[in-house]
Nucleic acid binder design. Structure first.
Ligand SMILES: Nc1ncnc2c1ncn2[C@H]1C[C@H](O)[C@@H](COP(=O)(O)OP(=O)(O)OP(=O)(O)O)O1
Ligand SMILES: [Mn+2]
Length: 993
DNA sequence: ACCTTAAA
DNA sequence: GTTAAGGTC
């Protein structure tokens, strides 16, 4: 059954958000600025020639009345050196749009901050099956909010085609044709939906309506702004023929370049001329078939149901520094932001992250840019904080809600002191100076997260010696928030500030029994604990008191979060009288284990908790506060100052995050120069809610597998279920803004079999659809290449070695990557950095990397501009043993020809194709003619020979720079001109087949 | 757990 | 500045 798929993309999204927020007319040229660059330009400004990434000056010159709006900056200053950008405003705006889409189809996948895919197949079907066939599509007004001005008039199916904002490729649609009728119905629904978005929120959007995601996406970009484009099956061949291959999703990067370079294809039509067998041979048995089909407009990827993100990250890049104070400053700000976002998410989505990540960009021992990430399970003391927040024990933000009995709505994250450089008034409103209260002065007279009046130390957080360790216990405080103190049954905390080393040994000793325990309700929990201990154990290794190896004394010691984490662990490991392990941080040992088991985060779990869990009923039955905000009533900037003023939102969560990040960074990097840090949270799982089931399974991840007729109870992975559960209803209620009777989703949920399928497991599962990515094959082959060439074997980095010491293969990769980057700007920057870094790193001369033959390749190669791009095929080793013949096993995507055959994948792709049965209604999408393939193959052979001849001539004529290198030249590859050589290499190896 | 690619 | 997802060890 051919589907009706829609891709919706907001027009000039950030610009539109600002336009609405500031109440500016649509014809006012406006651009959104992030530091020195423009990241969104509205259509009025585009008409004047202003483009994204254009320099401010140039934009102003082209369009003098251009209104520039800078994105929010948090951190108490609008200066780049002190503040960081926050995209929260656009996240919130995006979150306001999704519910509208959702009204039109619950099969709604958020694809980016301003894009979504919808599967309208079922809606269309339902519409067309009514008798008599209705003349209009459902309006799906928001039943609660739709005021007269917001109400949309029903659009009749008969009239859509004549609208100026509806474009039908190879139209008009023919109502006597089955699939055309579907498209017509789909187009009508979409027209209605776009109007709803505009009426309710003031944003315009464009859409593509097509049989699959690939084509829908392609179509949505064809006519903008505020237009929609319908792809009829008959238009597909013509559409793809001249369509730039690299604009197909997933082919915009290295893969596409490789395809382009290797096979000389510019358009999808070019690629169509290549037989599938050749594509498979060249690209592997995953990518080959995928590309083969994609260039024909064939694409089976299902629309997923994800509407909320699966991870959150806060990042800051800054100019080179090796001052730990600088890093602390950023880490602190980032932690505050992330904590605020997590807290918001806990309240709104009732889920929690299981993993924290720290990212940073530094340099390796050879001064090459080097990015690192470290992650760890969310530590128990943070889990505890989250559970407390979830249980409503943390004081809420200043109560604005007059909602009577209802608890206050979760507001958007209160970020640390927001300013907007271009709107001083806002800045004042945000209470910029308040930001200073929590500010980490670089001169160190005040510790991060500290307060002068801080009376005590929050157990479990930031304990250490000396001046840097004053933690924010007092200020976290607010009545009832001192987490552990609040719990009367809490073990005595006499040991909490004990000597870290002693704790370490204690902890280690006590660990053994726990590690031996096995299955049981608490098994998962123990695994988490155990993982956490191993992390902290490793963190704790090394100097931590007195004067350490770096000569740092206790005086300037940084907070030692993990030391206190150790204290926590110590208490965790206590046993009760019966010798059972005691876990004070969870009321019920089984609860968390149940949470972890998919689908079981239900009533049982909730009931088992000793603290009061939020009831699911009615909790969220209210409009999102952001809707007001979008009306201009409440902006994130308003009320921001409260965060730092009250200390509330810089709270324990932020502090714990900060401590985590800092300690890892510190341990890993000492005073290594860096240019970027980021903190992130991921692996979200449900928090227990009475009477509710998983939210993550429905809205965070996964495709809905059994869309039609899957009413059966095939809960093989335990997620979701065959019935809509309480949490789901709640979510739907919230998304739809309150009542939802016969409208929208509720109606379809009422239909048997629809949208009730279970959700596929995501974690650890292979990518079920879409193309594989090249990296792994590449990496694997490189490893193999190393082995074959007798190079040093790749070693996993031991966790606490200096992170600069990386595996040779990785390090070698970076060389190329650093140069490939985003273009010349980055290259130059790298090179500059390299000089400065040399200074910061002591200016010692570089050790020869291997056999004394290396030079600093950042410098070495920066000159050879163009060649740097697409350097995938260049072997990443300086080892002279690498001959010109060997490299295939080291060469990027091309190396995937060595990849193992995977019958599995082939089978699955075939299965998908059959299952989709696209040909039934769209012959254009049916399987490919075998005869034609044979003809193509023959043609291709001829072309190959011809191309070989041409190339031979060319190389004999002397390709520039590479003239002397023959295939067996035995020359050192790194010394050749890559461009000429690369081309040769690729083509010749290609032609061998 | 860490690294890579791709996208808006 | 973010997010998703794949792969290897
Ligand atoms: N490279 C980038 N850096 C930072 N933000 C970006 C970047 N690309 C896009 N964005 C943000 C700003 C955009 O408003 C938003 C949506 O992107 P996108 O849909 O590509 O453009 P757009 O919505 O501004 O215009 P269009 O009307 O062409 O869709 O994402
Ligand atoms: Mn857009």
């Amino acid at each position: 059954m051919a589907r009706v798929i829609v891709h919706v993309d907001l027009d000039a999204f950030y610009a539109a958000v600002e336009q609405v927020r500031l109440g500016l007319p649509l014809d006012q040229p406006l651009a959104v600025q992030q530091w020195e660059g423009l990241i969104a330009v509205n259509y009025a400004a585009r008409a004047k020639g202003v483009t994204r990434f254009m320099a401010i000056a140039e934009a102003k010159q082209k369009c003098p009345d251009l209104r520039l709006v800078h994105v929010e900056v948090i951190g108490g200053s609008s200066k780049r050196e002190e503040g960081k950008v926050s995209l929260e405003r656009y996240r919130q705006a995006s979150a306001n749009i999704l519910p509208i889409f959702h009204r039109f189809s619950p099969l709604c996948e958020k694809a980016s901050i301003d894009e979504a895919y919808l599967d309208l197949t079922a809606q269309v079907e339902a519409l067309l099956n009514q008798s008599p066939e209705p003349e209009t599509a459902p309006v799906y007004d928001n039943p609660e909010t739709a005021s007269a001005s917001e109400k949309s008039e029903p659009i009749s199916m008969a009239s859509v085609q004549s609208r100026s904002d509806v474009i039908v490729l190879d139209g008009p649609l023919d109502p006597s044709n089955e699939y055309d009728r579907r498209l017509l119905a789909g187009a009508t629904i979409v027209a209605q939906m776009r109007e709803a978005v505009f009426h309710e929120l003031g944003y315009t959007c464009s859409a593509g309506i097509a049989p699959n995601k690939l084509l829908a996406k392609l179509a949505s970009a064809m006519n903008k702004p505020y237009k929609q484009t319908v792809v009829t099956p008959r238009a597909i061949p013509g559409l793809m023929k001249d369509f730039p291959m690299r604009k197909i999703r997933n082919l915009g990067g290295k893969m596409g370049k490789e395809l382009c370079d290797t096979l000389g294809c510019e358009t999808a039509g070019d690629v169509q001329k290549i037989p599938e067998a050749v594509l498979i041979e060249k690209l592997g048995d995953k990518m080959g078939p995928w590309v083969f089909r994609a260039v024909r407009g064939i694409h089976d990827e299902p629309v997923q149901t994800r509407q909320i993100s699966k991870s959150m990250l806060a990042a800051k890049s800054y100019s080179l520094t090796n001052s730990i104070e600088d890093v602390r400053h950023w880490l602190r700000l980032l932690s505050m932001e992330l904590a605020a976002r997590i807290e918001y998410d806990v309240k709104l989505n009732k889920r929690r992250p299981k993993t924290f990540h720290l990212y940073y960009r530094g340099f390796d021992s050879r001064r090459r840019i080097q990015e690192h990430s470290k992650s760890c399970p969310v530590p128990p003391h943070i889990l505890q904080l989250i559970l407390q927040i979830h249980a409503g024990k943390t004081p809420k933000s200043p109560a604005k809600s007059q909602g009577g009995d209802l608890p206050p709505a979760p507001g958007p994250p209160q970020l640390p002191s927001v300013t907007s450089p271009h709107f001083p008034s806002e800045r004042a409103a945000s209470g910029g100076e308040v930001g200073a209260s929590g500010r980490d002065p670089r001169n160190g007279e005040e510790a991060p997260f500290s307060r002068k009046d801080s009376g005590g130390t929050v157990p479990g957080v930031a304990v250490g010696g000396g001046g840097g360790d004053v933690s924010a216990g007092g200020r976290m405080g607010g009545p009832g928030t001192s987490l552990l103190a609040e719990r009367g049954s809490e073990p005595p905390n006499g040991r909490r500030n004990a000597d870290p080393t002693a704790e370490l040994s204690n902890g280690t000793a006590a660990e053994a029994p726990l590690l031996q325990s096995n299955a049981g309700p608490a098994y998962q929990l123990e695994r988490e604990e155990s993982a956490w201990r191993s992390i902290t154990g490793h963190i704790r290794r090394g100097p931590c008191r007195g004067s350490d190896a770096d000569g740092r004394s206790d005086q300037d010691a940084l907070p030692r979060p993990f030391a206190s984490g150790q204290a926590e662990r110590e208490s965790l490991l206590r046993r009760d009288s019966s010798g059972q392990l005691k876990r004070p941080f969870l009321a019920h040992p089984g609860v968390d284990g149940q949470l972890e088991r998919e689908g079981l985060a239900g009533p049982e779990a909730g009931a088992a908790l000793e603290y009061h869990l939020p009831e699911s009923s009615g909790q969220l039955e209210r409009k999102l506060p952001e809707t007001e905000w979008a009306d201009g009533g409440q902006s994130i900037a308003d009320g921001i100052g409260a965060a730092l003023a009250s200390g509330e939102h810089a709270g324990p969560l932020a502090e714990a995050l900060y401590s985590f990040g800092l300690s890892i960074f510190e341990k890993a990097e000492h005073n290594m120069p860096s240019t970027r840090v980021a903190v992130a949270a991921g692996d979200f799982v449900d928090l227990p809610v009475k009477g509710a089931h998983s939210i993550t399974s429905f809205f965070q991840a996964g495709e809905v597998r059994g869309v039609a007729g899957s009413g059966g109870a095939d809960g093989d992975n335990g997620k979701g279920g065959e019935r809509i559960n309480e949490r789901e209803k709640e979510r739907v209620t919230r998304l739809s803004g309150g009542k939802q009777k016969s409208h929208g989703i509720a109606r379809f949920f009422g239909q048997k079999g629809f949208a009730t399928g279970h959700v596929a497991a995501q974690s650890g599962a292979g990518r079920a659809h879409g193309p594989p990515q090249g990296s792994a094959v590449e990496t694997g082959e490189r490893a193999r290449g190393n082995e074959l060439l007798g190079l040093e074997k790749s070693q996993p980095e031991s966790p606490d070695v200096h992170v600069g010491a990386v595996r040779k293969t990785r390090a070698a990769n970076r060389i190329v990557e650093g140069l490939e980057g985003n273009g010349t700007e980055k290259k130059v920057r790298d090179r500059v950095a390299s000089d400065q870094v040399a200074q910061l790193m002591g200016n010692r001369s570089l050790e020869p990397e291997q056999e004394g033959k290396e030079v600093d390749r950042n410098l070495d190669k920066a000159g050879s501009d163009k060649t740097a791009c697409g350097e995938q095929a260049e072997p990443r080793t300086s080892n002279s043993a690498v001959s010109a013949d060997a490299p295939e096993m080291l060469t990027g995507l091309q190396s995937s020809v060595f990849g193992k055959l995977s019958a599995n994948v082939a089978d699955r792709l075939e299965h998908d194709r059959r299952k989709s049965d696209a040909g039934a209604l769209c012959p254009e999408l049916s399987a490919v003619d075998v005869r034609q393939q044979q003809r193509l193959m023959a043609d291709f052979e001829r072309q190959k020979r011809f191309a070989a001849l041409v190339k031979k001539r060319e190389s004999e004529a002397g390709g520039r720079g590479g003239a002397s290198h023959g295939k067996k030249g035995g020359q050192k590859r790194k010394e050749r001109s890559q461009e000429g050589a690369e081309g040769q290499q690729r083509i010749s190896s290609f032609l061998k087949h």
